[in-house]
Write a protein that binds this DNA or RNA. Structure first.
Lengths: 352, 352
DNA sequence: CTAATTTTTGTAACCGGTTTCATCACCGTA
DNA sequence: TACGGTGATGAAACCGGTTACAAAAATTAG
């Protein structure tokens, strides 16, 4: 590997000059710069990132905190792949890379000094690598770790969960508004007995989508019936049991808004098992627009999130803080617009 | 941040001793070691990874090459998430991290010395970071880049694509055997007119699954009819059109083995549109066991791959090479066992 | 033409570790 | 008691960059 010293020597200049050619090109005279650049190309020179990070104290990597340990159960993030694509390509554009933080007991305990406050070792890794910032994906059980990051002063962007700290912000969909779109659509189809299968109230999307549901009904002058509000946990099974309960009500709803597509799929199966046809007997609208939404029978009408937009927005927020330096203002939380995708499960589909 | 110098000073020993405590504990006297360890814990000392990488020339990161640029189309890896989980947790256990290599023009051209031989900048990043090894996920159009890696002498493990090089190996499913399971299952149900929707012949899984199909038929003494071999590209649309052609045959097959679930889903839709019932009129078996397989109607019988096993096996292979050093033998290619998952689309489901 | 500026370049310290080699203390043995 | 050997420790070079500061060169002003 060519080093900066060799390059400098061959160009007949000092190391400092070579370094400047790549970092502050304007401070080098055009002809020197050109000579160095040509030689660099010829030798296929690449500055070593570790050396650079060591010298500057800041790496060109952003950490991704995504706890996989809880995922043994088979739960999957609904759109991790899109999120990663968005994240990666946006970071890429700034010359940054994404480091997936390995965590878990195994990784942690073989290291020097496992800290009690950081049981799974996230913060540990971040410190060791001088990461430029972190992106947090909620796994539902990392609240403590997230708080640690948010307070640490490191640029920090969370996905779908509110965090608070000096340089912390987050990205969500316009959950309330999205829920409103769904409910208004059902209202527009003439439904008045509209139930919801909500997400957990302690999660941001769960709470906001429920609020949006309530607001939309209120706005239309339709009273909210508490027996029409079932709470699920975003998993499929919870949608299934919630739907069963709703259909068993003395006066069952004619339409259901499920706050997540996985739950909507569960609800669909429950309806089928109860001999209840969708959308004829009960209309159904979901939220997320995951891949299977288009494949189930009937295809699910749902509120689509801008999946790769999450990644792009998160990257943008991190980069703004990183490149702006400590003085830069922390970006405001981002709310991504949602889109209602009308398919068959709501009974409003155009004839095919 | 505490540095090794501070720590050494506070312990009244030299830096070298502190370094040894963490790297070759046996070479330090028990009482010195204990003193240093206690102090390290007290100060919450963490060795800086960049400095360490710089000094040793080898980082504790493994690169993940996964080109997202081709993915604008909406294509997704069938089980990226499981793969990542397996990869990450296995690397974790060795104290290694996964670096997603940012690539693409944008990232590359703002860097020093973009190389022609490495148009998207993978190799570039690997060199800059002194990565310990790389894992390659085939995106169908990275053959040149993959070859570069494989030849480079860096530990290199590819997923689902054969690569050749001094320290390169790969992980696939037992594709031929898996296809055999599917075909034998159909034979066992009495089918003799069994067609296949194959993957692209230039891909490893495509070729091997087709070979497995042929072998299973041959073994059963059923001649392979070339008009029963349709080639798709693993995308859904290709499965759709292939199925349409097969059903339009003068003597259509009574069963179809699709070499990928996406194509199987396409085939299912095509059958439905052709008024052909599955499994009554035509039985269908897929390959992969992606999430939607269980959700389509009828639920898809398919050959399941050990999805997170890919990640674990890849990690194991990389770590074997990394920790074994240059002298260690390159691990043989891994073939993961597959499992036939019988659902409804083949007509053999147990009564519910 | 000289002095004052401004631009360009070089010197050297520094980032935080690892590792080679030399030294020193301590051990058992002759 | 002197000696060779072993194990523990320290001094210093090194990894490959960045950057503060000083010096030199080029430019401008007077």
């Amino acid at each position: 590997m060519t080093t900066i010293r060799e390059l400098a020597q061959l160009c007949g200049v000092s190391l400092a000059t070579v370094s400047r050619v790549f970092n502050k090109p304007d401070s080098v005279s055009p002809k020197t710069r050109e000579r160095v650049e040509r030689m660099a190309r010829e030798l296929d020179y690449r500055p070593n990132e570790s050396a650079r990070t060591l010298a500057t104290g800041r790496s060109t990597m952003v950490g991704l905190v995504w706890d996989t340990d809880h995922r043994r159960s088979g739960w999957r993030h609904p759109f991790l792949q899109d999120l990663l694509i968005g994240l990666k390509s946006a970071l890429s554009a700034h010359g940054y890379h994404l480091l997936m933080l390995a965590t878990g007991e195994a990784a942690h305990h073989r290291q020097v000094g496992a800290s009690l406050a950081d049981p799974v070792g996230y913060v540990d890794t971040v410190r060791r690598h001088d990461l430029a910032g972190v992106v947090l994906i909620d796994s539902g059980s990392d609240a403590e770790a997230f708080a640690l990051f948010a307070q640490s002063g490191l640029p920090c962007v969370a996905i779908d969960v509110a965090v608070d700290g000096p340089r912390a912000t987050y990205v969500t969909s316009a959950n309330a508004e999205g829920a409103g779109q769904a409910v208004r659509h059902l209202l527009g189809l003439g439904h008045r007995r509209i139930a919801t299968i909500a997400g957990p109230a302690r999660t941001r999307p769960g709470a906001d989508r429920l609020a949006g549901y309530r607001a939309a009904l209120a706005e239309a002058g339709v009273p909210v019936r508490e027996d029409y509000v079932a709470e699920g946990d975003f998993y499929r099974a919870s949608g299934h049991s919630a739907m069963r309960k709703l259909l068993a009500l003395p006066e069952p709803p004619t339409a259901v808004f499920a706050a997540g597509d996985e739950m909507a799929v569960g609800a669909l199966l429950a309806a089928r098992q109860a001999g209840c046809r969708v959308p004829d007997d009960v209309a159904l609208v979901g939220f997320d627009d995951i891949e299977v939404a288009a494949l189930v029978e009937p295809a699910l009408t749902t509120v689509a999130q801008d999946k790769s937009g999450f990644g792009r927005a998160a990257a943008a927020a991190v980069m703004a803080m990183v490149e702006g330096g400590k003085a830069a203002p922390t970006p405001a939380p981002v709310e991504l617009a949602t889109t209602l995708v009308v398919r068959d499960s709501c009974g409003a589909a155009a004839p095919r």
